[in-house]
Design a binder for these strands. Sequence first.
DNA 1: GTCTATACCATGATAGAC
DNA 2: GTCTATCATGGTATAGAC
Lengths: 201, 201
Amino acid sequence: MSTEPKLSFKQQQLIVRENAIVDATNNLLAKKGFDLMTMDEVAAEVGIAKASLYKHFPSKEALAAAAMIRLLENTLAFVRGLAADQPAISQLKNVLQWALEIRMKGGLPTLPAENTSLRDALLNNPRYISRLMDLNELMGELIEKAKAEGSIRKDLPTEVVLFTVYARSCDPTLDYLRMGDQYSDDQVIHFLLTTCFDGLH
Amino acid sequence: MSTEPKLSFKQQQLIVRENAIVDATNNLLAKKGFDLMTMDEVAAEVGIAKASLYKHFPSKEALAAAAMIRLLENTLAFVRGLAADQPAISQLKNVLQWALEIRMKGGLPTLPAENTSLRDALLNNPRYISRLMDLNELMGELIEKAKAEGSIRKDLPTEVVLFTVYARSCDPTLDYLRMGDQYSDDQVIHFLLTTCFDGLH
DNA sequence: GTCTATACCATGATAGAC
DNA sequence: GTCTATCATGGTATAGAC
């Protein structure tokens, strides 16, 4: 896209390498969570020495934050790319479905569910907070549009709807339903979507 | 209750001590989660030496399991004590409300939400599994009764409803809504209940 | 069964040569 | 910027005296 592709080979290699590091972090974070993920594992999965990791990222927290920030930016791009002529409720459902599909493929949940040190670290990361506020803003607008269109209950504060959708994206129900492997991935996603938006009644 | 209260002083003291240990574990587990909870902290909160812990419980996993089992047994007692003449849907809501109130008071969520080593340990604990299956059975009956009474959608498998309710009891939305401290505890619980059963539409 | 003291190990992080 | 080698910390678990 850029009109200035004149990055030196070294710089390009650096970017590729750092992407690989963040990829590995992403996988391990999804699989084991922040606390159980070790820098040794990340290094092993990338195929470099642990010390080299620290040349790219100053700490474990910073590394995890980089992965979460990339995920948030992908989410932002997805939300911005939604067809604006669709009903707002469809757009919201698309976002949640997309997030659940990522998790199904072994990706990260959009939000840290746990009461962990990662959440603390992220809340102190200005870049992360900035992206999160952008996403909250966009989603908040969608939710209010959906309210105006009569497809979201008006007695629920927008904030409550927002967190409810976020929470659904990291819902352990997905894991539990998959364990029984009685349902296909698509069915599980359908159940999560309909229980979220339509309720149990 | 028992007609044989003839426990020696020593045995009674033992029970009291073990209860105190499980209490401390419960609190720390709720506050920091399994991985970040250390045996030093537990010992310090009880006021005994760390080595003494290991005379009561053979490992950290066993200690955490004891706390989770006690919680499950309390939950079972609550469910069994529900007024059976109430509509099944009211009973279900009462269970979820009760679980959320416990969390509000700093207690544990009924189910481990996280992809953590604790979950693995619990799944290998026969006593825990036994209690969990008892609870699943009772809750499953309630859900099917509610379906028959027309207050739960019949197109949702009972299993899906069950996990959805469980997931709600450890929903991070509770934490996030409390952070903004814009709503009272009762309001937060009301939001969680209504979004779960009535949905967002 | 409780304590003090300690063995043992995994992990986050760093030093220094190339 | 990558490597090998190492440190420092903190955590699980145990030994042995009382």
